[in-house]
Computed example of a mutant assay.
Amino acid sequence: MSLTEQAIERIRQLIKDGTLPPGARLPPEQELAAELGLSRNLLREAVRSLATTRVLEVRRGDGTYVTSLSPALLLEGVGLAVEMMRGDDLLEITEVRRLFEPVATGLAATRITPAQLTEVERHLNAMIDAQNDVEALNHHDDAFHRAVFDATGNKSLAALLGGIAGRTLRSRVWRGLAEANAAGRTIAEHAAIYHALAHHDAPLAHAAALMHVSTTETWLRDNLGHTLTDTTTQPPQVTTPPAAAGA
């Protein structure tokens, strides 16, 4: 390991062994550098790196603190990485999503509370109402799935899937679906997921989510030869799906 990597590992070890628990303030720079046998420059580089990965938080004029180390915070980088991916790399991420998201949706069907189901329904209805607004459709699509992931009760799984199936990727897909006049079908797939959750039917929820993720994967495979950007397109004309009537 490089000297900087060694410095990072020494600080990480203090966190892992509980010497610096979540929320703890790091000792003054000179004191910590002496304790770890590091130069102050190396210590600063290590702190900057750990702040980038959300392990540490530098508060100007106050000091450096260990973050909450929550899954949502530590896995935030997954979403940032997905935003940068193109081509075959995106397909690989979609395959990962196809492996995990149906299972998570099935799990959510067994654990979802009435309040959580109401939240999922709210975003489904908002998608149906936002027939001429791609940005609103994308926002509520993302929120719909995050509400489903939260219903699993597994924060790590929710954070991971939230990053893999993030809003930026959904935006690109929504615009492609708008061009293909397939947005109505996609909303119908969301409605199928909702109704499976409402009936606490795990196998049906799993199948509905698998069908939905396959729509995204198919679109990506068909469009790998094109640039996946967020350029403006005409908004999709969405018809309220029969499955969502009264939802």
Rank of each mutant, 00 (worst) to 15 (best):
A159R: 06
A159S: 04
L160H: 03
L160D: 05
L160G: 08
L160I: 00
L160M: 13
L161F: 05
L161Q: 06
G162W: 00
G162A: 08
G163F: 01
G163A: 10
G163C: 00
G163R: 00
I164L: 15
I164T: 04
I164C: 01
A165I: 01
A165N: 07
G166Q: 02
G166Y: 02
G166E: 02
G166K: 04
G166I: 07
G166D: 02
R167C: 00
R167M: 01
R167Y: 00
T168E: 14
T168D: 13
T168F: 13
L169S: 02
L169K: 01
L169D: 02
L169R: 05
L169C: 03
R170E: 03
S171L: 11
S171N: 08
S171W: 08
S171M: 03
S171P: 05
S171G: 13
R172T: 14
R172F: 09
R172M: 13
R172D: 09
R172I: 15
R172N: 08
V173F: 02
V173Q: 07
V173K: 03
V173P: 00
W174K: 11
W174D: 03
W174P: 04
R175W: 00
R175S: 11
R175P: 03
R175Q: 12
R175A: 09
G176T: 10
G176I: 07
G176D: 03
L177F: 14
A178F: 05
A178L: 08
A178E: 11
A178R: 13
A178V: 10
E179A: 15
E179Q: 14
A180N: 04
N181Q: 14
A182I: 04
A183F: 01
A183W: 08
G184V: 00
G184F: 06
G184E: 01
G184K: 04
R185E: 14
R185D: 12
R185F: 08
T186H: 11
T186S: 05
T186E: 13
I187F: 02
I187D: 04
I187H: 02
A188P: 06
A188D: 15
E189P: 05
E189Y: 11
E189G: 13
E189I: 06
E189T: 08
H190Y: 11
A191S: 11
A191W: 00
A191I: 04
A191F: 04
A191H: 07
A191E: 05
A192E: 14
A192G: 04
A192D: 11
A192F: 05
A192H: 08
A192S: 14
A192P: 03
I193A: 01
I193L: 13
Y194W: 01
H195V: 13
H195I: 13
H195T: 15
A196T: 02
A196I: 04
A196N: 14
L197M: 12
L197C: 08
L197H: 13
L197A: 11
L197I: 09
A198E: 08
A198Y: 07
H200I: 01
H200F: 05
D201E: 07
D201S: 15
D201H: 12
D201F: 07
A202H: 14
A202V: 07
A202K: 15
A202I: 12
